[in-house]
Each structure stands twice: as structure tokens, then as C-alpha cells.
Amino acid sequence: KSEISQVFEIALKRNLPVNFEVARESGPPHMKNFVTKVSVGEFVGEGEGKSKKISKKNAAIAVLEEL
């Protein structure tokens, strides 16, 4: 299972809201860097990556460590 689906499963079991959002985009158009924030109830994680998908996955990994 992907880290993102694990976050949603845990949140569902604990009845917590999940929110993913792109917090920052930086860099030139051909080499963008994304920072995504995820919140699961009061737990927050942040991930960085060269694409929105990678930064979302890294944010999920960060919040899984707290859950």
C-alpha cells in the first residue's frame, strides 16, 4: 500500500480529518520544487519533492511517523 492510502486508512479508523495542500512552489518552471503539508487531526507532516506527487508522498511518510 502507498503511504498516502495508509494515512487515509489510519485517519478513517481514528475518525480524524485529512487535508493535503501544496504549501510552496519554488524554482524555475523547468525545475520546480514543491512542499506539501498534510494534517491528520492535530498531527502535521511536511514533504518536499521535485513534483507534487513526490512531495505528497514525503508528507504522508512524515505524518505516518507521528501517527
Rank of each mutant, 00 (worst) to 15 (best):
N19T: 15
P17E: 12
E9D: 13
I4E: 05
Q6A: 08
E21W: 14
N19C: 14
E46D: 01
F20W: 15
E65K: 15
G45Y: 05
H30T: 11
A62H: 08
P29Q: 13
E48M: 14
I61K: 13
A59R: 01
V38N: 05
K13R: 12
S39K: 13
K52E: 08
E66G: 11
I4C: 06
R24V: 11
M31V: 11
N15F: 04
E25H: 12
S39I: 11
N33R: 14
G41A: 01
G47V: 01
K53H: 08
K13E: 09
N15Y: 03
S2I: 00
A11K: 03
L12D: 13
K1A: 05
A60P: 02
A23F: 11
N19E: 12
G47Y: 00
R24I: 10
K32H: 08
E65P: 06
I54H: 09
E3V: 13
S39P: 02
S51C: 07
K57V: 09
F43P: 03
P29G: 15
K37W: 05
K52N: 03
V38M: 08
V44R: 12
N19I: 10
E21S: 12
E42T: 13
S55N: 01
H30F: 07
E66S: 14
N58F: 05
V18A: 06
V18S: 05
L64H: 03
K53F: 10
L67N: 03
P28H: 11
N15S: 10
T36I: 00
A59P: 00
K52Q: 07
K1S: 07
A23V: 15
K56V: 07
N33W: 12
A60V: 04
V35S: 11
K53W: 09
N15Q: 10
G27E: 06
V35K: 15
F43W: 10
A60K: 02
K37L: 07
P28W: 07
K37D: 01
E42P: 15
E42I: 06
P29F: 07
P29C: 09
K32I: 10
I54L: 13
E42G: 14
L64W: 02
A23R: 14
K56A: 05
L12R: 15
K52V: 08
I4V: 12
A60R: 00
E65D: 12
A62I: 06
S51N: 11
I61R: 14
A23C: 12
L64C: 09
V7C: 03
A60G: 02
